[in-house]
């Protein structure tokens, strides 16, 4: 049972962080299909820091550096989307898709290059961080980590930023009615950049949390297994609102963790379902959720439409 709770919390943190990232981007008016790629890059940034940082550093400092590295990697990668979608008016779906493929391909290339440089007979795309990971846990032996705390803090912060600050008001105006925002002197381009960058920050962090969830090495060839898209489903299910996103993430996190721990439950075991059923479960649930919640979508009205100053 405790295993289920800890996995649920880890996966909830991941989905919530990434979905919040998507939420910021979409509120600014840019559809971020590329979250998956951003996660991979965030994970890569974090993993590399975990690999090279001396394990002897104080735990808290180690944690902070890893988090910053993941966020920075996510932000840098998200700029690919920002430049293409905002300045070059590219098809956001196409660019996002390219970023997902590029994320996995580039991360694999980087990790393999590092591994073969160290040892020519090791052309694998795996990074290990067994020792480093211990810094993140706050009870030895259990998978409760500081990321969960950070995720809650960021959830609260996101809610405040979106609904209580000048920045949030302006950001949402850009996603709903950029012409209106422009007419009152708001720089739509800057706000959209801000939205995408925040999604890079949160998505990158989410990637790091994901690869430390219950494992202590990661094979980058596998990317993040569609988690970025699950996060998009969470975002839609959560109606683009942080608090609801948190609840949606909890639900999805629960189903996702079942595939890791279902063997520990007598009654699930007795059902004798193949393990693939549990693997599929989160995706099937998302489809059902999308079917139920897409019809009356609360999506920002101007999302996905490049802003052209000329069209008023």
């Amino acid at each position: 049972m405790i295993l289920l709770i800890q996995y649920t919390l880890v996966f909830t943190s991941v989905l919530m962080l990434v979905a919040l990232g998507g939420c910021f981007s979409e509120h600014s008016g840019v559809i971020n299909i590329g979250l998956e790629g951003i996660m991979v890059f965030g994970a890569l940034g974090g993993a590399l820091v975990m690999k090279y940082l001396p394990v002897g550093l104080p735990g808290f400092l180690f944690f902070i550096i890893c988090v910053c590295a993941a966020m920075l990697a996510g932000i840098l990668y998200s700029l690919l989307l920002a430049v293409a979608a905002i300045d070059f008016k590219a098809d956001q779906t196409l660019v996002g898709t390219a970023m997902n493929l590029l994320g996995t391909a580039a991360a694999t290339v980087i990790v393999k290059a590092i591994n073969t440089a160290e040892n020519p007979n090791n052309p694998s795309s795996t990074i290990q961080y067994i020792a480093a990971k211990k810094h993140f846990l706050f009870v030895d032996g259990y998978e409760f980590n500081w990321f969960m705390v950070l995720a809650v803090i960021l959830l609260i912060l996101s809610t405040v930023i979106l609904y209580r600050t000048r920045f949030g008001l302006r950001l949402m105006a850009c996603g709903e009615h950029p012409q209106a925002a422009d007419s009152v002197g708001i720089n739509v381009r800057k706000m959209r950049y801000a939205g995408v960058i925040i999604s890079g920050l949160l998505g990158g962090l989410g990637g790091l949390v994901y690869i430390t969830a219950g494992v202590s090495e990661w094979k980058f060839e596998n990317g993040v297994a569609g988690f970025g898209f699950l996060a998009l489903a969470v975002m839609i299910f959560g109606g683009w609102k942080p608090t609801k996103i948190a609840l949606a993430a909890l639900l999805f996190g629960l189903f996702r963790s079942l595939s890791n721990v279902y063997t520990g439950f007598g009654f699930l075991n007795s059902l004798n379902l193949p393990s693939t059923v549990y693997n599929m479960l989160p995706y099937i649930i998302s489809l059902i959720v999308l079917v139920l919640f897409s019809a009356n979508s609360a999506a920002p009205k101007a999302e996905g439409i490049p802003y052209d100053k000329g069209s008023r």
Binding site: T165, R166, A181
Partner: peptide, 13 residues
Amino acid sequence: ILGVEPAGKFGLL
């Protein structure tokens, strides 16, 4: 108020 928002510390409205 959009564009001329009265805000205090940290941009809180």
